[in-house]
Computed example of a mutant assay.
Amino acid sequence: MKFQLMALAMLASSPAFASGNFLVDFEKNWDYANGDIAEYYNGGTAADGSAGPNLGVSFSGISGLSNDADFTYYSAAPSATGVAYVYDTAFMNVAGGVSGGLQFFYSSPEAVAGAIKAYSGLNGSGDLLGVFDFAANSSAAYDQWSHALFSFAGTAQSFDLSAGANIVALDNVSSVPLPAGFWLLGSGLAMVGAIGRRGKAAA
């Protein structure tokens, strides 16, 4: 019984989430004429040459847009300063992988089927792991935002956002990994079962 309790305690004390979490909030005064996010969140630079934090996330076909006195479409966005706007064939790459899901806020004046597709490889390569559709939730002023959770099977290294080109804006994109304890659960329960059987045999 003592060993069973120890095994259960090991599971209970495991960290809530696996490592590699990230939150991209797009909080920057983006250069409207040269706003490609590019490697800004991957230890590199945006198209305007500015350097950002290394979150292990890179973008292509996605521009950062900021609110100012002349451009206030995104004033109701969850983070006040900047958002991401999909304008072309677009990918978000996470070389370290995302397991479990992706959460974000989006604003879209039109419904978009297949707005986000998760793939096991970079730049839309490998296996298709899941597809997420956007409902129309805003006027053309992008004044309404919805929180969404995109769950998929496996580990994704890229997210294809191309279907929402010139339609969709995003904010506060973050990983939702599986709990670290999930991976220990099977082995932990097996340990408890084995100890229980051993105790019965000894009796």
Rank of each mutant, 00 (worst) to 15 (best):
A90Q: 01
S19G: 15
L55D: 03
W183F: 15
A148R: 12
L11W: 02
S58R: 14
Y85S: 15
S79P: 01
G181I: 08
V98W: 02
D133Y: 08
S50K: 14
L65H: 05
A76Q: 14
S13H: 00
N123V: 01
S158K: 03
Y32F: 13
L65W: 06
A201S: 10
G82N: 05
V83G: 02
N34R: 13
A136N: 12
G49H: 04
A163N: 14
L184D: 01
L185S: 09
A84H: 03
G35H: 03
K117R: 14
V173H: 00
A69R: 07
A46R: 02
K200E: 13
V24W: 00
S158L: 06
D143T: 03
A51P: 04
F71H: 09
F182Q: 09
G186S: 15
Y106S: 05
A9N: 01
A38I: 05
F22Y: 10
P179N: 03
L184W: 07
V131K: 11
L11N: 02
N29E: 06
V86I: 13
S146L: 09
V173P: 01
G126R: 02
A135W: 04
A135H: 06
S120G: 00
S19E: 15
L23R: 14
D127Q: 11
A169F: 04
S146I: 07
N29L: 09
G121Y: 09
S120C: 05
S107H: 03
V173R: 00
A90V: 04
G44Q: 07
V86R: 06
P53Y: 01
A111S: 15
T155V: 12
R198K: 12
N166C: 07
Q4R: 12
V192L: 14
L5Q: 11
Y106P: 01
A38G: 00
G196D: 07
I62H: 06
D143H: 04
H147K: 12
L65S: 06
R197Q: 11
K2D: 12
S187A: 15
Y87G: 06
S99R: 11
F26Q: 05
W183Y: 14
L149D: 09
V94E: 05
A46D: 14
A165M: 10
L149S: 13
S146M: 09
L129F: 08
S107Y: 00
A180G: 03
